[in-house]
Amino acid sequence: MTYEAPLEKHPVNIREVVLGEGEKAQKIGGENTFPFHSFEGSLPNPPGLALEVLDMQPENWATWALDPFKDVSSDPVEWARKGVEEYGAEILCLRLLSTDPMGMDAAPEEAAKTVRKIVDSLNIPLIVLGTGTEDKDSKVLIEVARACSGKNLLLGPVLKGNYQEIAKAALEHGHAIVAQASMDANLTKELNIALCKFFPPEKIVVDPTSSALGYGMEYTFSIIESIKQFGLVDKDKMMQMPVFADIGIECWRTKEARESAEQGILWEATTGMTFLLAGANLVVFRHPEALRLIKSMISY
């Protein structure tokens, strides 16, 4: 029996999505093969690795999760700056936690102001996330879209119940969106189909929702893998959007991450690495050390 390397070629590409604008803009996606399979296909863009920033003082974070930002955690602009300047983040993910209707319930205008300040002072690609509450998020994200018109932010999560309003505002002001459908590839596809009736597919990133190591990680892993299969192998155009994974929030909730700094960092980095191996194109980390580790390992 003679051996011939069983390489697989796919005649299609995952869509390329641009984040941000200007010099520091970054592209994600664009590959025509599985993650890290540069031996059989092309991966024009490395995965996007984003660092999480909250727009308010975090509560109940493990000391070692907060430590890197302890001195700036009450000021989102300084927090963002430190993330970029000190920890080398090239993409930031701002979570507008202050707008949570069950929490501080801050006004959309307030939140939008913070976003604008960060955009103006750093000008790097920015993901802006609401709290997953459909009606409040649509108010907040529409306001953010307007306040940062033309900055090509990545806005989310866009859900089944609010995709029309948010996507319309994103389209009008030139932003990309994160389309979120929970843990089900068919729901991901349905939402994409609905969106693509009026929204450009090359401005959509999908979020199948993430879960942490030990707390359902295997579900997210398999759903990302199957989305990539549908896109590349079955050539399903509605499954060729880059995949987003918001893992910091999930990982640092766990008791295991709160047990020790080493274990916490590994909890997050392991979850991130696993989703990258499944095919995630954009991953949000909370701990700068977890981000740094992943970055150095995948760019060997």
């Binding site: 190591l213 030990g214 990680m217 295997e218 892993f221 398999s222 295991e256 020790s260 080493e262 274990q263 590994l266 909890w267 392991t270 696993t274």
Partner: peptide, 20 residues
């Protein structure tokens, strides 16, 4: 051999090899 490094690895294996 340290617990902090091995434990995440063990949980990881347990997750990936669980029967979907």
């Amino acid at each position: 051999t340290e617990k902090e490094f091995i434990f995440p690895l063990l949980v990881h294996r347990f997750n990936i090899y669980s029967d979907p």
